[in-house]
Structure formats: structure tokens, C-alpha cells
Write a protein that binds this DNA or RNA. Structure first.
Lengths: 189, 189
DNA sequence: AAGAAAAATTTACAAATGATAAGAAATCAC
DNA sequence: GTGATTTCTTATCATTTGTAAATTTTTCTT
């Protein structure tokens, strides 16, 4: 299972053929292996990526522990938000959890298009809006539910994620330790 | 202390006089009292607001407790994100914590301008991007730090907030109970 | 200014989660 | 396929945070 770039772009905000072509002409395909560190938090990232095939995670480090706060799979957009938005170092590292095929787009090319093409500008708006809604509901969900409830919800809404990603990453995504998640999983048996 | 609408708009994304005028021509000023419920989660909100003067909070309810997840003060934009982005019921209630003066803008007028004026489209993009960065770092901060650290950080970065808002709201914003926050405050004396 | 109402604090106890360590299971590398 | 490495689970104990109730403090109303 994989996703074509045209479909990925349209799912964010439907574009005319012309504007879509403008975007796609600046996009190239890259294949990278599992464990590759695509984005590092100590440098400015000059590209955006779209996942054609595979799954990735974004994490920050606190002391020696890694905290995963986002997963991206087929159809998702992979960006270092602080690089993309503020042209500053990001807080996130992004690691490939499977061999991946990605579409890559130069951030500065995209910025140019924002000022030239109103459809692309609205595509960029919609992209940020959709990410915002997702982040905000994830944040509220965190506040509203216990770790156990959050895990059960993840089980029912994203069962594929649980299968493709190792438990430790799921745990930190849920905001708990792997030990704690093991307890929860044992309870549910 | 209060903020003029032109400055608020420019702080998000600098606009030409022409585009700024297009926006401002659709904006009107409203004065509303403390405790007024500006936005309710059981209806679609058709306006955006900008805070000229005052402070507000967004909250959701879990069983009988209210969970505050956002504060907005002078210069901030007040929107029901799910209404604004998806034209659906929001998850948030927004309550005025002081007598407020707000600038109101029709959401549908803004949507029209997005398709007509590329500057406004980019203004809308930047607005969503800035909110996204804020929400994302708030989310990561939650995962990274203990309640005590989060309170200390709030004390040093937003001391005015602590003074203007009652402790119970601060507690739920930090993701803890008022009792827990009292303990932390007692420790810091 | 006085009384009422709401909010904040304190205390005692319960529940959830974290830390550490040891063993079992799964995965990786050759 | 086998041994080595990593990940997951289980158990124990410590810490943090929650819940409930009583008390103090602050704010609101008249």
C-alpha cells in the first residue's frame, strides 16, 4: 500500500491541475532505509516530505529518554515545524521506522509559490489548519483521559499503528513509561 | 493597555494597506462583560474575535469538571477551531474572565477573502501556523516537564497570567487539580 | 461594612505512575 | 540456525497526583 503525491496534495486542499503541477514539478522521490534519521533537531531542515510508503516518528530527547509525540504514515506530511514556520532549529528528530519512500519538496520553493499562487497559499493554509486541529485534539485528549483510556482509544482508532510500531514508542506517545504500558496491556488481557 | 486591530493583524502577517482595509472593513467592535460565555461547544460559531482588551479562557468539560486549555489576552485571536476549520461543532467553550473589548469578524467573509486576496490567504496561513507552533510546543512541554516545572516556567514566562487568572484555571491549564497546585505553591514559598 | 458565596489551602488517605532490577520474549546479525 | 542484542514484561518499592472533607481566605452582594 502506498500513496501518490497528487492524491496526498488533494487530500489537504483540492488544487487545479495547473497549481498542482507547479507543486509537483518541484517534488522528487527518495528511498531511505529503516532507522535513518531524516530530520535532526540541531539543524534547520530545508525540505518538507510526504510519505508515499512507510512510517516515521517525531521525538524529542529529555535527558537520555526519547519522547515520541507524532507518527506519520502513508499520506502524511513530514516537516520540522520550527524550520518550516520560523526558519529556526526544530525541537524534533524524525526517524524512519520502516524502509520508506518519500516525496521531497524544497521549503523555499514552496514559500515562493505561496506569494505567487493563491491556490498554493490556501493549500498551505489548509495544511497548517489541519495539523493544528489534530494537535489540539491530541492535546485535549491527553488532558481528558487516563493513560489506559488513551491506549484503548488508540487500539480502536489506529490498530495498524500498534502493529507497525514498537511498544516503547507507543508508550512515550501516550505519555507514560513502557513499564506502565505493559501493566495496562496485562490488565486488558 | 489595549491593542488596535491593525497592529493585531500585522503581528500575524504584515499586510498591505489595501488588504488590511479589506479585512478591517468587515470587523466591528463589541464590549462584553466578565463571565460572558462567548463561544459554546454545542453550536457552530460564525465569527472570529481579536482581543482588544481583556482576557479569556477556552475550556472543555469532562464529567462535571472544566478543563482550561488556552488563555487569550490582548492581541490574541479567539476562534472555535473546529467551527473555523471544519464548520463543525467545536470542543471548546470560551468564557470572558474580565470585561472585554473584542473585534469581531465574520468567518464566511474571511473565507471569501481567502479565495480572492492572496495576501489575506497568506495571513490566514500564517495565523494557523503560529497557532500550530504554540500548540505543539505546549504539548511537548507537557510531556517533558513535571507539573512543578511547568508552574515555575509559567511563573517566569507569563507572570501577568498568574495575576489575572484564578488559581483553579491555572491548575487545569497545567493539567493538575487545584489541590495539587496548592501543594506546589506551598513548596515554593 | 456584614453576611453569603466562591475559591484556595491544608490534611489524610487512595490510586496511578515512575524507577529500578531481573527474567522472558522477540529481533538482529552473521 | 545460533548466539548476541534489544525489547517487553513482571515484581517491588517510592513518588506523584488525585479525592474528599474541613478550614481559611478572598471575593461578591447588598
Amino acid at each position: 500500500m502506498h500513496m501518490e503525491i497528487g492524491e496526498i496534495l488533494d487530500n489537504i486542499y483540492p488544487l487545479s491541475d495547473l497549481s498542482k503541477e507547479k507543486l509537483i514539478s518541484h517534488i522528487s522521490e527518495v528511498v531511505l532505509p529503516k532507522r535513518h534519521l531524516l530530520i535532526k533537531n540541531d539543524r534547520i531542515e530545508h525540505k518538507l516530505y510526504f510519505v508515499k510508503k512507510g512510517i516515521v516518528r517525531a521525538y524529542t530527547t529529555k535527558d537520555d529518554t526519547e519522547i515520541t509525540f507524532w507518527f506519520g504514515k502513508e499520506g502524511d506530511t513530514v516537516v520540522s515545524m520550527n524550520s518550516y514556520i520560523n526558519q529556526q532549529f526544530g525541537y524534533e528528530n524524525i526517524e524512519l521506522l520502516e524502509d520508506c519512500t518519500l516525496y521531497a519538496l524544497s521549503s523555499s520553493r514552496l514559500q515562493e509559490l505561496f506569494t505567487q499562487d493563491i491556490e498554493v497559499a490556501n493549500w498551505g493554509r489548509k495544511f497548517a489548519e489541519l495539523e493544528l486541529i489534530k494537535t489540539e485534539s491530541q492535546f485535549i485528549n491527553r488532558q481528558l483521559r487516563s493513560a489506559k483510556e488513551r491506549y484503548e482509544e488508540l487500539l480502536s482508532t489506529k490498530p495498524d499503528l500498534i502493529n507497525r510500531v514498537q511498544v516503547g514508542h507507543i508508550a512515550s506517545y501516550l505519555g507514560i513509561t513502557p513499564v506502565s504500558l505493559s501493566r495496562i496491556r496485562a490488565q486488558l488481557k
